[in-house]
Design a protein around this nucleic acid. Structure first.
Ligand SMILES: [Mn+2]
Ligand SMILES: [Mn+2]
Ligand SMILES: [Zn+2]
Ligand SMILES: [Zn+2]
Lengths: 132, 132
DNA sequence: TTCTGCAATTAGACTAAGTCTAAAAGCAGA
DNA sequence: TCTGCTTTTAGACTTAGTCTAATTGCAGAA
């Protein structure tokens, strides 16, 4: 069960060593890591030096092929997420930590989310194209 | 009816000439402008040169005091919005243009919004703090 | 009216996040 | 083995925004 290699292949992505360790890292971490965190954490799992360009190239490839998703939480760098289930995110504006919010936990967008978070704001953005 | 001066004052913001023209511009444009667009458009309405730092300082002041809101639509720079009504945004990923989506037009987050937009993705992020 | 002191503004240096480029390395098939 | 495409690399570059230190603007005190 070479699962990550198979996963990449099944998404049309050639499983190079760099891509495998990056995908593995994103899939096994809980914390929505940034590109820089991934670079730091993954560099010594490879026999060669790992370039920043490769990290960004790989993350973009994985996002475009649907292996992971990108989470934008301004201010700050993009975060990466292997949880493809439809879900929201909660950003603690003091610590910067990100928490997953299950889709069904938001019945109508509230001021308090399940008593666990104090919501100060909410950004909802749809991406796509106008009808031609 | 010096309305912009009064609006700023009522929000606790001293209405300097720079702040007034910037606030006026954001309130009278339809297009969710960026800081840079604001700088370009507003500079020649003032007898003095207008600094980029002042544009950012002013926009941050106006956001913090609740006169305008900030819209993050990665990739790209922050956009500013004088429409304080609760609403969503739609970003055309081809042109970068932003459209307001009335709050009630999104009954349950759909693939097609009122037949007008093709939605490829959606980012929902809540900001706030964890309960202590 | 002048003086004083804080608030606001300015130019430009600096930083953070990410992209681009040109060269090198790694493969897969002929 | 040779050939050509893909991937990776180091580092330059770009964009968006913040910071700094000096200057300017003004409101209130004297
Ligand atoms: Mn930003
Ligand atoms: Mn970004
Ligand atoms: Zn998530
Ligand atoms: Zn808007």
């Amino acid at each position: 069960m070479n699962s990550v290699e198979e996963l990449l292949t099944s998404h049309g992505v050639k499983p190079t060593p760099q891509r495998v360790v990056i995908a593995e890292y994103v899939m096994n971490t809980c914390c929505h890591p940034t590109a820089d965190q991934i670079l730091q954490s993954v560099a010594d799992r490879l026999p060669v030096s790992l370039s920043r360009a490769t990290v960004y190239n790989t993350l973009n490839t994985l996002v475009q092929s649907g292996v992971i998703r990108e989470v934008f939480t301004e201010p700050g760098p993009a975060r990466y997420d292997a949880n493809l289930d439809r879900h929201h995110h909660f950003v603690d504006t003091k610590t910067g930590k990100i928490f997953d919010i299950p889709w069904q936990e938001v019945p109508q967008l509230p001021q308090e989310l399940a008593g666990k978070y104090k919501v100060h704001g909410c950004q909802i953005t749809f991406f796509g194209q106008m009808e031609d």
